[in-house]
């Protein structure tokens, strides 16, 4: 199989919903839908932080007091790209995959697991940085971590449901 045909086939698999009735009955559609909605919270949070970064404005913390320390730290950008923008892209990806998963796109569900796993590890790292390196917490970053942890729980539930015989 030549390369273009491989890609065409993979794309067809990715965008083709699983229409087998038996399989669909055990599909955790509600869990996928919940993941979609939860990811929108993370997307809104990340968009806010990205805009404040790009606009050069200071983010005001109302619950904790370390926003400026965290968001002006060297960890707030990766190779010149605001981490918040990376987060917004990640949450949008999760939203898209969860939505496709809810509509029965099997490959999207698998990619969702991979994406959320990466985000979970990244969030753990970022919380560690806030707690032990920067020694300040930013409420918007903590909200993002919380969203990712909830998404992780949902994805674990999805995988458990889908792996049932």
């Amino acid at each position: 199989m030549d390369a273009p045909r491989i890609w065409t086939t993979l794309l067809a698999v990715a965008v083709t919903p699983d229409l087998q009735t038996e399989s669909n009955t055990s599909r955790p559609t509600l869990l996928y839908a919940a993941a979609s909605v939860v990811s929108l919270v993370g997307l809104a949070d990340a968009i806010y932080l990205t805009v404040e970064h790009v606009a050069g404005r200071s983010v005001k913390c109302t619950i904790v007091s370390g926003c400026s320390e965290v968001l002006s730290s060297q960890y707030a950008t990766v190779a010149g790209i605001p981490l918040a923008l990376v987060g917004a892209a990640a949450y949008f990806t999760v939203f898209s995959l969860a939505t496709l998963g809810a509509f029965g796109y099997r490959v999207a569900g698998k990619l969702l697991t991979l994406a959320v796993a990466l985000m979970f590890v990244t969030s753990l790292w970022l919380v560690y940085l806030q707690a032990f390196v920067i020694r300040a917490f930013c409420q918007f970053c903590l909200l993002s971590a919380l969203v990712t942890f909830v998404l992780t729980g949902l994805v674990v539930a999805i995988v458990a449901r889908e792996s049932r015989p």
Partner: peptide, 25 residues
């Protein structure tokens, strides 16, 4: 339908971002 939803959310996200960007100027 899912693709329409995704495109709609992308549009809303960009619009919200743009609006936030302008609101502080």
């Amino acid at each position: 339908l899912p693709f329409l939803i995704i495109v709609a959310v992308l549009g809303i996200a960009l619009a919200v971002g743009w609006s936030l960007m302008r609101s502080g100027t």
